[in-house]
Design a protein around this nucleic acid. Structure first.
Length: 661
RNA sequence: GCCGCCUUAGCUCAGUCGGUAGAGCGAGUCACUCGUAAUGACUAGGUCGUCAGUUCGAUUCUGACAGGCGGCUCCA
């Protein structure tokens, strides 16, 4: 038996070792129970991989990103085995790891119900206990087709192997890679194959290496993500390297639920969605109205400071406008059906740009006017499918903080940079400061979905890309995500618990100026066509408000808080004193309420706490005698005996600086 | 739009194996007047999402519709 040399790689260290031929990867890592796989020359391999001379081998720990993917993928296999154990007629779809978990799709007669998940979980626990071994087996297309004759979906995947189809089917690549075809057998104690699945791997060595998992929910999903295909039943689960990590994950979910803007919107009396009005059509209550107005006032002011002109346009228009803009042919299905009267079809507007174009076109324009920037809170209505409506983040009627910059082609790059700086600054003002950019381009395989020449698209995309790169932010490509009239940049912001939200968009449009025949007179006397740059800063006021509710978990910074100061008398005798303090605060434009109900003081504090009011101002005899008040903050911190004038100044300063307290 | 689940008081939720319902919080009234997260008592409040069907009788069973939730698809 001859020796071979392998290189063990660990972080920046490399160490050459001699091992005997036939040594398996696990033998290198036998003293580390956290290692679940090996990375050999960049490729993930099972621990049962037989080392070859010259291999560079790196341990993959279960708590690394790759390790978790492997764990989750293996857990998905165990789940599929459990499902087929209980429902032998269930046919297998795909079962990839996803962020924070995994899923597996099944074709079953009856959809799963929550009790089924309990049954499946206990069958999975049994399989895990049995400590079945995941064993890789190389096969051929022909053999696999015979072996999997009862698994039509797997057979379809084999047919796609290596082709464009497999890439286009999310998750399919974990089943069939571009290389050789492999099956994983789950081997029981006595060496018999308990279950097999077409799979690229790698997997954990054994089922017992699954430390903690939980099935989360079941839902339908179209086969290969295409709504023309049959819906399969998908079960989502999660798996972690330890019970503690699973627990922490479940806590993060619970934390996200606590922040859910739909729940907080009700608890804090901000907004509601009356059934009587219709799905996806929110109303703002007085407290939500305060936040919305503060947002709008601030954003309007900033736009004006940045050289925008505030305009106003109607909610409906005759159809011709939307033909000119090109929207009707492309987006008729997402507009509300027309109202017919006086012999014309009127549509609720789904976008503001056509109206702004008409303002531009209302008279002749000179190059001296450019960039011409029109801005408004335009209320648009979109017929979103019933299944996609979601709180304030996906609605059927909303206000866009929409602007259109009309510029010469030469001015376009500068204007885009200006817009990008502007929106990032705005988002920072609202407390979001972790961003990345996404560049949505046209899908070259679907030219009929996009208007304009290839050259125009290339030029527009390049202009946007350059501006993005100059921003220094991370740039993520989004092929095929563009609007029909041009490419777009969107700003993705991370919130307080790390979730990303699509916020602002900037779109380069060479198409509508042509449709509306927009022109300006250049310095040399010729007529030229301007370029139009669409930009929404929050996207939608409603949506951004929802995002802010979740970002702040309802505890808004004072400048946005519906009630900035809740004044609480220690007892009834102190109420007049606080009413007087409140009058002084209101005179400074602060939002103050005095709780003169006959609740006990402790109860009033609790109520203010639950309403997440930033400043509680409390007064009793001690304060009155000293001409002072006592602060209590949301975190329970106290600051007693603050002179009234200083207290007012403190609140006013926090509001003015837009800081959180 | 598709699949599944859900809809009982303002909110959160019990309950009725078919005989028209209950708690806590909230609201109102009264008493209490208290120094940093719930004072007590009483009262009001529901054609049990809507419309059909089955039934002597439906909040309960069936169906359709509406709305909500979780996904999928979509997201100018």
């Amino acid at each position: 038996m001859s020796d071979i040399k392998v290189v063990r790689v660990h972080a920046d260290q490399r160490a050459e070792t001699s091992v005997t031929t036939g040594t398996k990867a696990w033998e290198l890592f036998r003293d580390d129970a956290d290692v679940v796989a090996a990375r050999v020359a960049g490729q993930l391999k099972d621990l049962a991989y037989e080392l070859a001379d010259g291999d560079e081998v790196e341990a993959v720990a279960i708590d690394s990103a790759d390790g978790r993917d492997i764990l989750r993928h293996s857990t998905a296999h165990v789940m599929a085995q459990a499902v087929q154990q209980i429902w032998p007629e269930a046919r297998l779809g795909i079962g990839p790891p996803i962020e924070n978990g995994f899923y597996y799709d099944f074709d079953v007669e009856t959809p799963f119900v929550p009790e089924d998940l309990v049954k499946i979980e206990s069958a999975m626990r049994k399989i895990i206990k049995e400590n079945q071994r995941f064993e890789r087996r190389v096969t051929t297309d022909a053999d696999a087709l015979t072996e999997l004759k009862d698994e039509p979906y797997k057979i379809e995947l084999i047919g796609l192997k290596g082709g464009a189809g497999a890439e286009g089917t999310e998750g399919a690549s974990v089943e069939v890679g571009a290389g050789e075809l492999t099956v994983y057998d789950n081997i029981g104690r006595s060496g018999e194959a308990k279950w097999s699945d077409l799979c690229r791997g790698p997997h954990l060595p054994t089922t017992k290496r699954i430390p903690a998992f939980k099935l989360m929910r079941s839902a339908a999903a179209y086969w290969r993500g295409d709504e023309k295909n049959k819906q399969l039943q998908r079960i989502y689960g999660t798996a972690w390297e330890s019970k503690e990590a699973l627990e922490a994950h479940l806590e993060r979910i619970a934390e996200a639920e606590k922040r859910d803007h739909r729940k907080l919107g009700r608890d804090l009396d901000l907004f509601s969605f009356p059934d009587e009005i219709g799905s996806g059509l929110p109303v703002f209550h007085p407290k939500g109205g305060v936040i919305k107005r503060e947002m709008e006032d601030y954003v309007r002011r900033r736009h004006i400071e940045e050289g925008f002109d505030y305009v106003g346009t109607p909610h409906i228009s005759k159809e011709g406008t939307f033909h000119l803009s090109g929207h009707l042919p492309y987006y008729k299905d997402t507009m509300f059906p027309p109202m017919e009267f006086e012999g014309a079809d009127y549509y609720l507007k789904a976008m503001n740009c056509p109206m702004h174009n008409l303002i531009y076109r209302s008279r002749g324009r000179s190059y001296r006017e450019l960039p011409l920037r029109l801005f408004e809170f335009g209320h648009v209505y979109r017929y979103e499918k019933s299944g996609v409506i979601h709180g304030l983040t996906r609605v059927r009627g909303f206000a866009q903080d929409d602007s259109h910059s009309y510029v010469t082609e030469e001015q376009a790059p500068g204007e885009i940079k200006h817009l990008l700086d502007f929106v990032l600054g705005l988002l920072r003002d609202f407390g979001l400061d972790d961003f990345y950019l996404e560049l949505s381009t046209r899908d070259d395989s679907k030219p009929d979905k996009f208007v304009g020449s290839e050259e125009q698209w290339t030029n527009a995309t390049d202009v946007l890309r350059t501006a993005c790169e100059e921003s220094g932010l991370e740039l993520v490509p989004d092929p095929g995500g563009a609007a029909f009239y041009g490419p777009k940049v969107s700003v993705q912001a991370k919130d307080a618990i790390g979730r990303t939200w699509q916020m602002s968009t900037i779109q380069y449009d060479f198409n509508q100026p042509q449709g509306f025949d927009l022109t300006y007179q250049a310095a040399d006397g010729t007529r030229k066509q301007p370029v139009m740059i669409h930009s929404a800063k929050f996207g939608s006021i409603e949506r951004f408000l929802g995002v802010l509710v979740e970002h702040y978990a309802g505890a808004f910074p004072p400048w946005l808080a519906p009630v900035q100061v809740q004044a609480i008398p220690v007892a009834e005798f102190a109420a007049d004193y606080l009413h007087d303090v409140a009058r002084q605060m209101k005179a400074q434009g602060l939002r103050v309420e005095v709780d003169d109900s006959d609740d006990r003081m402790q109860k009033k504090i609790r109520n203010a706490q639950l309403q997440k009011v930033p400043f509680m101002v409390i007064a009793g005899n001690d304060d009155i005698e000293a001409g002072a008040v006592s602060f209590r903050y949301r975190d329970g911190r106290q600051d007693n005996g603050v002179p009234v004038a200083e207290a007012i100044e403190r609140v006013a300063a926090a509001v003015a600086s837009r800081e959180q307290v």
